[in-house]
Every structure is written in C-alpha cells, then in structure tokens.
C-alpha cells in the first residue's frame, strides 16, 4: 500500500470514475496506482496536459460531477493551467493532481 494507492482509493470513494492525464517521471508513482486500480477508475491518456484539464472541465460542465486531471511536474503542470482557469472562471468543479520534483 503506497500513498498513491490511498489517494486513488479515496478518489474512488468520492465516486470518481474517470481521470484525464499524461504520465511523466514526476508522476509515475501515482500512475502505478492507476494501473493497479484500473478496474475501478478509468484513465484517459491524452496528448497534451491542456487537453487533460479542458476535458476534465468539459466533463464537469456536462455532468455536474467532479472532473479530475493529472500531470507530471513543471511543464505538465504549466500546460494544465489554461484548462484550469477555464474551470475556475466558469465555475466547474475540477481537481488537478500534479507530480512534484523536490526543489532545492
């Protein structure tokens, strides 16, 4: 049982069925937990993190449910911002998870 397992299982407890994202070495520990829980949470692998955040926003707007997206550290997290601002300004409930490398 890892911290990522706890995170994923908590999301599943919240009724999260789908997560949009793009893996990377800053988030691979979390992606492993997605793999081991793939029967309970659907991972949609997109080609750009902005798409992940926008898709989560669209999902939230059309369902009223929580949209969830993830990215790797730095560039991935920066790419997600535009989609997240869309969610913020149009008031869509979205959770973003970003991997973070240890800084000095």
């Amino acid at each position: 049982m890892t911290a990522s397992d706890v995170l994923i299982e908590s999301l599943i407890d919240w009724g999260v069925e789908t997560i949009f994202g793009l893996p990377g070495d800053g988030i691979n520990g979390f992606v492993e937990a997605l793999r081991t829980h793939k029967d309970h949470i659907r991972y949609i692998h997109v080609r750009h993190e902005e798409t992940a955040a926008m898709a989560a926003t669209g999902y939230a707007k059309f369902t009223g449910k929580l949209g969830v997206c993830f990215s790797t550290a730095a560039p991935g997290a920066i790419h997600m911002l535009n989609g997240l601002y869309d969610a913020k300004i149009d008031q869509a409930p979205v959770l973003a998870i970003t991997g973070m490398t240890i800084t000095i």
Binding site: T2, A3, S4, L7, G26, I27, N28, G29, F30, E32, A73, L84, A87, K88, V94, L95, A96, I97, T98, G99, M100, T101, I102
Partner: peptide, 12 residues
C-alpha cells in the same frame, strides 16, 4: 478548482 501537489518522494 482544487489542486494537490504530489511530491515524488511520497508517491510510492
């Protein structure tokens, strides 16, 4: 929007 930053050391 809610955001969780997940430090790499804790992920696994």
């Amino acid at each position: 929007v809610a955001h969780i930053a997940l430090p790499i050391d804790y992920q696994s």
